[in-house]
Computed example of a mutant assay.
Amino acid sequence: MQYALVIYEDEALYGEENTPAWREIFAQHEAFAGELAQKGVLRGGAGLKPTATATTVRRVAGQCSLHDGPYAESKEQLGGFYVIEAPDLDAALAWARKLPMQGDGSVEVRPIIDGTT
């Protein structure tokens, strides 16, 4: 079964790109992704640019409108995700517990729909 590990954190903790704090957590994520790959469970993933670069398409009553920024403003932002292969939810949760984070935040673990069924 494939699972998405969806990362939510306060992006202000990272500062600007290429600062020491940013480079440190980036290195931690490279190591984490390397471990996932070494164990043969990594299927994909990506980090995301800051929320200031986001554009949201909102559909209401069949009409679309564009909005700068993320859909929901909150203390934590969607920062990136990993797609992993795990035999069950417990194994996926074990990987989520190891995921590096700069501060407080959360990792949503969600099964991916298998399009073959």
Rank of each mutant, 00 (worst) to 15 (best):
G69C: 08
S65H: 15
G45R: 06
Q63H: 11
Q63D: 10
H29T: 02
R43C: 04
G45S: 04
G44K: 07
A52G: 12
G45C: 05
Q38L: 09
Q38F: 07
E35R: 11
P50V: 09
R59T: 15
A72F: 01
L36I: 05
G40W: 12
G62L: 02
L66A: 15
K39H: 08
A46P: 00
E30A: 01
V57A: 14
P50K: 08
A31W: 00
L66D: 13
R58Y: 12
T51V: 13
G47N: 00
F32H: 01
E35V: 04
D68M: 09
C64S: 12
R58T: 15
L66I: 15
G44A: 13
Y71L: 11
Q63L: 13
S65C: 13
R43Y: 03
L66G: 12
K49M: 11
A37L: 11
D68W: 09
Q38H: 10
S65F: 13
D68Y: 09
T56A: 06
H67M: 12
E35H: 03
P50I: 07
E35C: 03
A72V: 05
A37S: 12
G47L: 02
R58I: 14
P70H: 07
R58V: 15
V60W: 00
D68R: 12
E30C: 00
G40Q: 08
L48P: 01
G44E: 10
A31M: 00
V60K: 13
R43E: 05
Y71C: 09
R59H: 11
D68E: 12
G34C: 01
F32R: 00
E35P: 04
L66S: 15
R59A: 10
G47W: 02
V57R: 08
P70W: 08
A52D: 15
G47D: 06
H29A: 02
V57T: 14
Q38E: 13
R59Q: 10
R58F: 11
A31E: 06
D68I: 04
Y71N: 09
Y71S: 11
L36E: 04
Q63C: 13
R59E: 11
A33R: 02
C64M: 03
T56R: 02
R58L: 14
A61L: 02
V41S: 05
A31F: 00
R59G: 09
L48K: 01
G44F: 08
T51N: 11
P70C: 08
E30W: 03
A54I: 01
H67V: 14
K49R: 13
G34Y: 02
Y71R: 05
L48S: 02
L48I: 04
Q63G: 03
G40S: 10
T53W: 14
F32Q: 00
T55A: 03
L66P: 11
L48W: 03
T51L: 10
V60L: 06
L42P: 03
P70S: 12
R43N: 02
A37M: 05
S65T: 15
L66N: 13
T55E: 08
L48D: 07
G34Q: 04
G44R: 07
G40R: 12
K39P: 01
V41E: 05
R58W: 14
L42W: 07
R43D: 02
F32P: 01
E35W: 03
T53S: 15
